[in-house]
């Protein structure tokens, strides 16, 4: 049974008076197994963000359904939606979205505090996580005192501290320099190796080549899919992703 099942998603936006209709997603259909690290690639306007918003239960599809652990997202009542997102999903954003009035520690604790967990439990969960993400020394600093990469690692800690079923990352390396990006991707790999399922939306071929599987979206459908071969290196996958991208943009790749 797949961790995440996305079935025939269709999303149509219409302007306020219904005169203009934009089809953001035509027919998106895929599934993610537990423990998988999947990248979603596509150009601007390909429907990536819409897909992510639907996966995050921030938006509702016009047609089709999303199942997380076999549970349909559409079945979660509105008033429980916030709690659902908090407990079952973790988010990492391009612009970190850390609160500037909190220390990194408190930023990471935020979802646990909202879930009313006792302080001792929070501490116990944070310690190994901070160790793994190499931010143990930075916990009492404020976001403006640390670098972008460190901010993003804190944001990752905040996303996974609740042990979510699924970690959704939206261009996590978008605001980082190449060194910080590599380091962050390394962290994603580690988290994934600990069993965390990850879906990452990205522009970057390097970032995508760190995952197990790459989905290419174009004009609202999953256009192409690459799977890491047994023992395949990152570099090899990177080459294949680049190849696919070139073909995708020149229009020579079909199906």
């Amino acid at each position: 049974m797949a961790m995440l099942q996305v079935q025939h998603l269709q999303k149509i936006y219409s302007t306020r008076f219904g005169t203009m209709r934009v089809q953001a997603l035509r027919d998106v259909d895929f599934s993610v197994e537990e423990g998988e690290f999947v990248s979603v690639m596509g150009e601007s306007g390909s429907g990536k963000t819409t897909l992510l918003n639907i996966l995050a239960a921030l938006d509702k599809p016009t047609e089709g359904a999303v199942f997380l652990d076999g549970q349909p997202l559409a079945g979660v009542p509105d008033r429980k939606l916030s709690a659902f997102r908090r407990d079952r999903l973790g988010f990492v954003f391009q612009d970190f979205n850390l609160l500037d009035t909190f220390t990194l520690r408190d930023n990471i604790f935020l979802p646990l505090v909202l879930a009313r967990r006792p302080y001792a439990e929070m501490q116990a969960k944070l310690a190994p996580l901070a160790e793994m993400l190499e931010i143990s020394d930075l916990l009492d600093k404020y976001p403006y005192e640390v670098s972008g990469g460190q901010k993003q690692r804190a944001a990752v800690a905040r996303a996974v501290i609740t042990n979510p079923s699924l970690l959704l990352a939206d261009e996590p390396t978008g605001a980082l320099d190449s060194r910080a990006s590599m380091k962050l991707l390394e962290m994603f790999r580690r988290i994934n190796e600990n069993g965390q399922t990850i879906v990452m939306v990205t522009h970057s071929a390097i970032a995508a080549s760190r995952s197990d599987r790459v989905l290419f979206i174009k004009d609202g459908v999953v256009f192409h899919e690459l799977r890491r071969e047994e023992q395949e290196t990152d570099d090899s996958l990177f080459a294949r992703v680049n190849e696919a991208l070139t073909m995708l943009s020149t229009g020579r790749l079909v199906g």
């Binding site: 921030l58 008033r79 939606l81 916030s82 709690a83 997102r85 908090r86 407990d87 988010f91 954003f93 979205n97 850390l98 609160l99 935020l110 979802p111 909202l114 905040r158």
Partner: peptide
Amino acid sequence: IMQKVGLSPE
């Protein structure tokens, strides 16, 4: 930001 992280509107 808080609503993204899971603070309900209420």
